[in-house]
Every structure is written in structure tokens, then in C-alpha cells.
Design a protein around this nucleic acid. Structure first.
Length: 607
DNA sequence: GCCGTTTTCGGCCCGACTGTTTTCAGTCG
């Protein structure tokens, strides 16, 4: 339901503004508005989503918003309006003109604005449920421009969509959870506040947020929790636990514990459930009882508390060293801990560089110099510039001439930059047949080649795998970008035999990327472990499209930690000289690589 | 709706694929 302007206002965060702009864009699109006007809103979604500061907070602090690219007078005014009222009058008007749930229909793959409009006007379809019913009844295939295949794909898409419970991407949840935790921390009594649960384990998406507060005054902490301005609804509230729904739709649970129980409670509420069960079993074997209040030894005269003020003490009581939260999935971490073989996980500060970034030359938002400076400010020593290649027309991908020009620009800039080195790269498209989108004559002049699939996601497993393996046979190929192509919530991974890809990478001395973009986080944790087991280095890359995107590296590191990676397993922890040696081994390979050449020749002939 | 300016309106990344056509519209990235 639409928020009325007169209703109590919840503080607004950037994702809220972005969501409103996105909905406006959707509704305008269905109405058939000027496509460039729609694009302006979509650009604004990205701009707001990427901002390194909170818009509403900035305005509340009485500060001016800086001039933002693509945000003119009108959109700036709307950002003010949303920050103040939680909504935009334009959105409210559009919602009156169109059924409120109709923009949901645009989420169905294969349905764009024209078809949604058509379905609305011809069949009075306004919701996913109505769409599903119509597809089941075979009414959609009867419409002009639709057919049985379209109908079947709609049916399948809605089925997967309807059954999915809403989860938040880690980076989005962070934007709500961290200010909330900060608010609780500033309660003034020195309470210890920790966000536990899957958030602390750095899972790529979280269903809700679990906050733990160690306090001497649970009543006051509870009251403060419930008073938080973003609370829309109190779902439950007692003396030690409460549960609320925020205006953003994110559920937050609070648990207040006495300070001496913090460690045990933290362990308990961090999970995972499977990990907790396994640890409790260990406790049981030792005649101990483990719960959220501590570790207890049974005696004839009741129970004696033996540990629980810190997590370390909890683990120690069951004979284990501290296990980092990211590993707590009962996926071998307890056995490894027992044997003293836990990995020393990679940390953000271990990263010395970033091997995937874009600039304004294609679809990025910073100049070469701005990106270099931002990388340096994030403590990096090197940064690879890897624009899209020409096949990605929408991003204005580089052709050989423009790439050659950028190579010169980077050489020139490197001569004057201090404290950071730019590497010359490309994110070259892997075409349908596994051939790269640019000729070797130009690729061979680069420091590295990052290969990526951006098309033909629905090839069969065999075809998709062969395509990628073929590309890795190319004379110049350093890193396979976002290896499964998935976008969280939006696009499933393509079907590919990852073990074969990883073994090919091993054979060819190629690295795999762990793309740190919050929508991607690709490689997934299991594949990180697979790569590590096979001895293939993983590059944690930001895929930065603007200077502050380097902030996202922390989510990539979280994912890498879930994949058991140590600094040694990560390519871009290496010093520049060492990295260069690795990259040199992936470039300008000799005539031994006949497979790729043969394939290229065959394909040329076929054309 | 933004932007840049030859200062007040015209341009704004576009190629490929799919299913539906019978020469192409709609969607995607």
C-alpha cells in the first residue's frame, strides 16, 4: 500500500530512493513515456545506489547534496521530496493511473513494457497471480504477438518467482542494519551490539537481521530498540527478545543478554543451525551443556557455568580453536579445527590491487585518473583497467582503435602517477563459439585479458562449457570473469561444468575471478573451495564502475572467506612484480596453442 | 529528464536474439 504523506515518516535510506526511482521508471515505461526520460530515472537508480553517503542523513545534517552526474534540478528536487516524505508525488500519481502491482510483471523474464501493457489492456492482468492463471488457462497464447512458447516461458518464470521468499542482498541489508546497530550502540550505557546471524557469516543474501545486545539493562535496550524511527510494525516484544519489521521490509530480531553471556549468545545467534548442532554435540560428548547463556558442567548439585563470556571461551570449552563466522556451516570446519588445520582466511587489507574496473570510456563513471586515485585511497597498489569490448554495444565497448588509444593514455598517465600503477587490460567478450571479441594483435599488447560471457546464457551445459574452455585456449587469456554469470534475484547462473572449467584454468595457468559486485558475488563459495583445492588462484575484483565502488571489495572478501580462501589463494594479494610474472604467463602464448587457432579457422570458413 | 551549448532545443550507446512473423516487434544487455 502506498505510504500517505501524512503518516509518520520513517527515515529514508538510499535504497529507498533508488527503489522509488526504479518504480517510477517502470510505470513510465508501461505508459509508453519518452524513453530518454525513463533512462534518466534508471541512471538515477544507479547513481543513488552507488553513493558513498546517505542522502537523507546528509540533508538532515543540513548539508547540501553535491552535484551528481545525471541528477538535474528535477531529480534533485525529487530526492529531497523522498528524503522528507518517504515517497514522490509523481509515483503516487502513477500508482493511481496504473494498478499498483503491475510493475511486478516487468520482473518476469520475457515481459517488457509493451507486453505488460498489452496484457493489462486485453486481459485485465494486473498481478502475478492473474498472469499465472491466464497462462494456465491458455489465454495468453491467443493474443497477437504471443504464442505457445511465450506462454510456457511465462508460466515457468512465474512459478519460480511466486515461490521465492524475499531475501535481501548482503550489501542492501548492510545499508539498513549498520545504521540500526550504530543507533543501538549510541544508547549511552556502553552496551555491546553485534549483528549476528547470516549477516555475520557474510552470506550473499539474508532473510532477516539478528542483532545481539549485551547489556546490564535489558528493559532500556528493548525500549530503545522499539523506538527506532524506521520500525514500521512490532511483531513481537518481550523482556529479552523483540522482533520488528522495518519500513524497508527487512525484519530485525533483537536479543538482549547479560554481558557474561555475550560469547555464548553470539555463537548461538550467529549459527548456522547445522554448525551449532555439531558444536553442541561436541559439548554433550564432554558432559557439557551449551546454550545461548553459556557452557555448563553438570554436577550433582545442579549446574556450573564454565564458559560463555567470549566466543573463544565457548570454542575452547569443547576443545576447538576459534572458528571464523564465515566458515560456520558444518561444512568441514569443525573437523579442520580439531586437526588444527583451519585456514588463515584472507582479509580486506591483504588485497594489494584490483584487476577489473571500468571508466567513462565505456559504461563506467570515472576517468582513468579518478579511478586510479580512488584505488590508491582504498590502499591498493595497482589497478587493472578492463573496459568492455565492442560486442557489448550498450556499454559502448572498445574496438581495437579505441583500445589502442586507451593503452597510450594509460602509459602516459602511469608516468606521472605515484603510489599506484595502472595495468592495461580488457574485459573481452567470449563470443558464442568461444572466440574472443578482439583480435590477438591488439590483445597481445595488454598486461592482462579478462574474458567474460555476456550473451547466450541459455546454451546447454555441454555447449556452454565447451565455449568457455575454447576461449581459455586463446593465446591471450588471464582471468575468467564472473564465471557463472548469475545475478542475485535476477538471473540464474548459466549451466556450466565448473570443475572442468577450473581444471582447464589449472592447465592453462589462468585465474578465476570472484566478482565482488553485490549483485554478482560470483564465484560462489563452493567454487572458491573447488578452485583452491585444484590450485587455481582467485582474483577478488570490484568490477568498479565508479570511484567509490572499491568499497564493495569487502563483500568479495567475505565471499572468499566463506570459500576458505587464504591470502595465498588470492591472486591480487601478490606484490606487483609477482603478479606481472603470473600475467606474463597468460599472454602471447606461442604456436603450441593450436586448438584455438584451428577452431577460429573453422569458424571463419563456416561464415 | 539531463546536458551542453553554435545559450534554449535537439540529441541522448545500439547490436543480437527470439518468437512471432512473412518482414519484424519486443526484449535484453
Amino acid at each position: 500500500m502506498a505510504t500517505k504523506k501524512s503518516s509518520p515518516v520513517h527515515p529514508v535510506h538510499n535504497p529507498d530512493i533508488a527503489r522509488i526511482f526504479a518504480e517510477i521508471a517502470d510505470l513510465l515505461e508501461i505508459q509508453g513515456a519518452n524513453p530518454f526520460r525513463i533512462r534518466a530515472y534508471r541512471n538515477a537508480v544507479r547513481t543513488v545506489g552507488d553513493l558513498p553517503f546517505d542522502v537523507a542523513q546528509t540533508l538532515r545534517d543540513g548539508k547540501e547534496l553535491p552535484k551528481l552526474p545525471g541528477i538535474g534540478e528535477d531529480l534533485a528536487a525529487k530526492m529531497h521530496e523522498i528524503a522528507e516524505t518517504g515517497t514522490a508525488s509523481l509515483l503516487e500519481r502513477l500508482r493511481r493511473e496504473l494498478p499498483p502491482a503491475i510493475s511486478e510483471l516487468l520482473r518476469v523474464p520475457g515481459l517488457g513494457p509493451k507486453r505488460v501493457k498489452h496484457l493489462h489492456e486485453e486481459l485485465d492482468i494486473n498481478t502475478l497471480e492473474q498472469l499465472y492463471k491466464a497462462a494456465q488457462d491458455g489465454r495468453i497464447r491467443a493474443l497477437a504477438g504471443f504464442g505457445p512458447k511465450t506462454e510456457a516461458s511465462i508460466l515457468a518464470a512465474v512459478e519460480t518467482h511466486l515461490t521465492k521468499k524475499r531475501r535481501f542482498k548482503l550489501a542492501t541489508a548492510a545499508q539498513y542494519a549498520e545504521p540500526f546497530a550504530t543507533y543501538l550502540r549510541t544508547g549511552g550505557r556502553g552496551d555491546e551490539v553485534v549483528i549476528a546471524g547470516s549477516y555475520r557469516r557474510m552470506k550473499e543474501t539474508v532473510g532477516d537481521i539478528d542483532i545481539l545486545i549485551a547489556t546490564d539493562d535489558a528493559d532500556a535496550a528493548m525500549a530503545r530498540f522499539l523506538r527506532y524511527a524506521e520500525v514500521k510494525e512490532v511483531l513481537a516484544s518481550g523482556t529479552t527478545r523483540a522482533s520488528v519489521m522495518l519500513a524497508s521490509g527487512l525484519q530485525v530480531d533483537l536479543r538482549a543478554v547479560p554481558k557474561e553471556s555475550l560469547g555464548a549468545a553470539l555463537h548461538y545467534f550467529t549459527g548456522s543451525k547445522a554448525h551449532n548442532i555439531a558444536v553442541r554435540r561436541l559439548a554433550q560428548e564432554r558432559g557439557l551443556k551449551l546454550n545461548e547463556y553459556g557452557v555448563f558442567a553438570k554436577s550433582r548439585r545442579g549446574e556450573k557455568r564454565v564458559a560463555g563470556d567470549t566466543e573463544v571461551s565457548v570454542f575452547a570449552a569443547v576443545g576447538l580453536p576459534f572458528i571464523p563466522p564465515e566458515l560456520r556451516e558444518d561444512a568441514g570446519e569443525i573437523e579442520a579445527a580439531r586437526r588444527g588445520e583451519l585456514p588463515h582466511l584472507v582479509e580486506l587489507r591483504d588485497l594489494r590491487g584490483d584487476l577489473h574496473a571500468h571508466t567513462r570510456a565505456t559504461d563506467g563513471r570515472g576517468s582513468l585518473r579518478e579511478m586510479a586515485q580512488a584505488a590508491r585511497e582504498h590502499g591498493l597498489e595497482y589497478l587493472a583497467i578492463t573496459e568492455h569490448s565492442r560486442r557489448v554495444a550498450m556499454a559502448h565497448g572498445l574496438d581495437p582503435i579505441r583500445l589502442a588509444k586507451q593503452i597510450d593514455e594509460i602509459d602516459t598517465l602511469n608516468r606521472e602517477l605515484a603510489g599506484i600503477t595502472l595495468l592495461k587490460g580488457i574485459e573481452v567478450d567470449i563470443l558464442d563459439d568461444g572466440i574472443l571479441d578482439l583480435p590477438d594483435s591488439i590483445l597481445g599488447k595488454l598486461d592482462l585479458v579478462v574474458g567474460a560471457v555476456h550473451s547466450k546464457f541459455n546454451l546447454s551445459r555441454v555447449q556452454q562449457t565447451e565455449r568457455i574452455l575454447a576461449a581459455m585456449d586463446a593465446p591471450n587469456f588471464s582471468i575468467l570473469a564472473h564465471p557463472t554469470g548469475r545475478l542475485l534475484d535476477t538471473r540464474p547462473p548459466y549451466d556450466v561444468d565448473m570443475l572442468r572449467v577450473i581444471r582447464k584454468a589449472k592447465a592453462r595457468g589462468i585465474a578465476l575471478e570472484l566478482n565482488a559486485h553485490p549483485e554478482r558475488l560470483d564465484l560462489i563459495d563452493a567454487h572458491c573451495r573447488m578452485a583452491k583445492d585444484e590450485g587455481v588462484p582467485v582474483a577478488i575484483n570490484s568490477d568498479a564502475h565508479s570511484p567509490h565502488d572499491f568499497d564493495q571489495l569487502r563483500f568479495g572478501v567475505g565471499q572468499a572467506r566463506r570459500g576458505w580462501l587464504t591470502a595465498k589463494d588470492v591472486l591480487n594479494t601478490r606484490p606487483l612484480a609477482e603478479l606481472r610474472r603470473f600475467l606474463a604467463g597468460t599472454m602471447n602464448r606461442g604456436p603450441d596453442d593450436r586448438k584455438y587457432e584451428a577452431r577460429k579457422a573453422v569458424n571463419r570458413k563456416a561464415r
